[in-house]
């Protein structure tokens, strides 16, 4: 006990000061679409065939192109492995949370949208978050990891709370199956205005692989339209923190 305590006391502060740093090179990251020309027009359908989550769609309208819905992507990395032209490639950026659902649907040659922050956000310096888990416990663990000394969301003025009455933000993970829809509604109603809703993880955004079945695990939108969307399966703590800062209107999300 005593040597352990001494060792603990000697440990320096563990908090990672490299804010929203890119993921390590080991990580598969999330895909992005570059503007490198795609062979789709020549009949290449490899990525869409490989995609088990039906996230990649070959659009046939006016001008054929490929779209990739990060809200359905389970980050398996199969599309980036097969793409012969490097149109779909890996991005290890942790700044992937968005405020509009459409921004999650990537198109070739898209510029990564820079979020526009509300000029007067009520939560810029302080935000209390209530987390509701609806069936994706890896995301629960990553949200929990945001509170560990390494990521330490507390330093941005973010606290997690036990009561919806205290909360400003509702963070929802998991695909919101039928039996969780009513409890989620009640939780939302128990929160005082102003409030924001954040969907965290692919399962929360669309239900992921489990969508479209009898249990109606089709994501948060069956109950409420989120203000911030955080992709990832499960999202890395930095991605979650990026989403939280976005919800706060914290300028840290713009200036690196």
């Amino acid at each position: 006990m005593i040597p352990s305590l001494i060792k603990y006391l000697q440990t320096p502060v563990q908090t990672n000061r490299n804010l929203l740093a890119d993921l390590s090179d080991d990580n598969r990251g999330l895909p992005i679409l570059t503007d490198s020309p795609c062979h789709h027009t020549e009949g290449c359908t490899l990525c869409a065939e490989e995609c088990v989550a039906s996230a990649i769609v070959l659009q046939q309208d006016r001008e054929p192109h490929v779209t990739l819905d990060l809200g359905a992507c389970i980050a398996c990395g199969r599309c980036t492995d097969v793409c012969p032209t490097g149109t779909i490639t890996v991005s290890r950026s942790t700044r992937r949370a968005v405020t509009r659902r459409d921004d999650l649907v990537l198109k070739s040659g898209d510029i990564v949208p820079v979020p526009v922050l509300a000029s007067k956000s009520p939560f810029r310096n302080s935000m209390v978050v209530r987390y509701v888990s609806t069936g994706d416990n890896a995301t629960d663990m990553e949200v929990g990891a945001c509170q560990n000394p390494i990521f330490d969301v507390g330093r941005f003025g973010i606290q997690f709370t036990a009561s919806p009455r205290f909360a400003d933000a509702l963070l929802i993970g998991g695909p919101v199956p039928l039996a969780m829809q009513q409890p989620l509604r009640l939780c939302l109603d128990a929160m005082a205005e102003p409030k924001v809703v954040i969907a965290v993880g692919t399962q929360a955004i669309t239900g992921g692989l489990l969508r479209g079945r009898y249990a109606r695990a089709n994501g948060v939108t069956t109950v409420v339209e989120p203000d911030v969307w955080i992709p990832g399966n499960p999202p890395h703590p930095w991605l979650i923190i990026h989403g939280l800062l976005l919800a706060m209107g914290n300028p840290l999300v713009i200036t690196p």
Binding site: P12, V13, T15, P149, D152, G154, R155, G157
Partner: peptide
């Protein structure tokens, strides 16, 4: 004391 930077 918990080895984190912590709030202001």
């Amino acid at each position: 004391l918990q080895k984190r930077k912590g709030p202001r």
